[in-house]
């Protein structure tokens, strides 16, 4: 091959790469996000008036239980919380058809665990779901040390009715240790390998893992409707 061939290869590679840069930059500037983003809908008004007991959101006698396995540092969990969660709450939880149980995991790292402990502790005051959603809304880079006590105080302070100092004190209690261990054991038993993951079952019946292929509420509807129809 000649020098001309080398030049042709270099020019073609340069053109191809330029096309890739341009497409990437145009895509990144597009208004429509193509990847999960932090919650865009405020979840706090959405939760108003819905009973919370520990990690469960919804009426305790709801016929169906939906368990959500999530890590507070997982961007996909934040995307689900900011999107489809509202639809599930509106159509299933608020009407009393289902309740959602937050089964928090901390596999991404130390920031996940600090946030999870605080969220479970907030759950002892009936404010787990507000805490979880506000943490998702301010989600930082993985294990960058963003889940500080000050950050959690700020989150807790913005939730009406939550004693953030008490939640921080209780974060390291044996009861929270047991709750985290229980969630982890439940995830292991159900074969959870990533987050967000879901399992559902009728009250008093066994939980079955749900094969969810998208972060849309429509991915959960068939399973929930089927359980409700029994």
């Amino acid at each position: 091959m000649t020098r001309r061939t080398y030049l042709a290869v270099a020019a073609s590679a340069g053109l191809l790469a330029t096309g890739l840069f341009a497409t990437s930059l145009v895509g990144a500037r597009a208004d429509e996000p193509v990847a999960p983003q932090p919650p865009v809908r405020s979840a706090l008004p959405l939760l108003n008036g819905i009973p919370q007991h520990g990690a469960a959101l919804g009426r305790p006698d709801a016929p169906v239980t939906l368990v959500e396995f999530a890590d507070l540092q997982c961007p996909y969990c934040a995307a689900w919380a900011g999107g489809a969660f509202a639809d599930v709450v509106r159509d299933y939880v608020r009407p009393g058809k289902a309740r959602i149980v937050f089964s928090g995991l901390a596999f991404i790292g130390p920031d996940s665990e600090r946030g999870l402990r605080f969220a479970f502790a907030a759950g002892r005051q009936g404010k787990l779901w507000q805490t979880v959603h506000l943490i998702y809304a301010s989600q930082g880079a993985e294990n960058a040390g963003w889940m500080t006590d000050d950050f959690l105080r700020e989150i807790g302070g913005s939730i009406q009715g939550l004693d953030a100092e008490r939640a921080l004190r209780e974060s390291d209690s044996p009861a929270i240790d047991r709750q985290i261990a229980s969630a982890k054991a439940s995830a292991t038993r159900l074969g959870v390998r990533g987050t967000p993951a879901f399992a559902a079952g009728r009250i008093g019946g066994p939980l079955r893992p749900l094969a969810v292929t998208s972060l849309e509420a429509s991915a959960l509807r068939p399973a929930l409707d089927s359980l409700l129809a029994r």
Partner: peptide, 11 residues
């Protein structure tokens, strides 16, 4: 520690 962040970015 940044894989999820990069993978979920718009890039």
């Amino acid at each position: 520690g940044g894989c999820e962040t990069v993978q979920s970015s718009k890039y």
